[in-house]
Simulated scan of single mutants.
Amino acid sequence: MQCIRDGVHQPYSYVVTPNVDHLALLQHNTSFRRAYAKARWRVCDSRVLMPMLHSLGVRVPEVIPGSDLTLDLLAWADRKGLRLVLIGSTEQECLRLQARYPDIRLFHHNPPMGFIDQPEEVERCLQFIREHPSELVFYAVGAPRQEILASAVSSTDRTGMGFCIGASIAFATGSVKRAPVWMQQARLEWLHRMLSEPKRLAKRYFQDLMFIIPAYIRARNQRNNRCNPAKQDS
Rank of each mutant, 00 (worst) to 15 (best):
Ser13Pro: 06
Arg47Ile: 07
Arg178Asp: 00
Leu84Gln: 03
Phe115Lys: 07
Ser13Asn: 15
Pro102Gln: 09
Asn224Phe: 09
Arg226Thr: 06
Cys164Ile: 03
Leu73Arg: 06
Ala152Asn: 07
Val122Trp: 03
Arg178Thr: 10
Arg130Pro: 12
Ile217Lys: 15
Met210Trp: 02
Arg130Ile: 11
Ile213His: 03
Ile169Pro: 01
Val63Asp: 14
Ala99Gly: 05
Ser134Phe: 00
Pro102Cys: 13
Gln118Thr: 09
Asn221Thr: 13
Asp45Trp: 01
Pro51Ala: 12
Ile213Gln: 10
Arg158Asp: 11
Tyr101Thr: 03
Ile148Asp: 04
Phe138Leu: 13
Phe107Arg: 13
Phe138Glu: 01
Gln222Glu: 13
Asn19Ile: 04
Ile129Gly: 03
Leu73Asn: 06
Arg223Gly: 04
Arg226Tyr: 09
Asn19Val: 01
Ile217Glu: 08
Glu123Tyr: 06
Phe138Cys: 03
Val137Glu: 02
Arg226Asp: 05
Asn29Arg: 10
Leu84Tyr: 04
Val16Ile: 08
Gln92Gly: 04
Gly114Gln: 08
Val85Ser: 14
Val137Phe: 00
Arg158Ala: 14
Arg59Pro: 01
Leu106Ala: 02
Val8His: 10
Gly81Cys: 07
Leu95Ser: 08
Ser175Ala: 15
Arg42Phe: 02
Arg59Cys: 11
Glu131Pro: 00
Ala172His: 01
Leu69Phe: 14
Arg124Lys: 15
Phe163Ala: 01
Met52Pro: 03
Asn224Met: 14
Phe171Asn: 00
Lys38Asp: 09
Phe32Leu: 01
Thr173Glu: 03
Ala140Ser: 13
Ala77Val: 03
Leu53Glu: 15
Ser196Asn: 09
Trp76Gln: 14
Ile169Leu: 04
Leu49Glu: 01
Leu49Cys: 08
Met161Val: 15
Asp157Arg: 02
Leu74Arg: 02
Pro229Tyr: 10
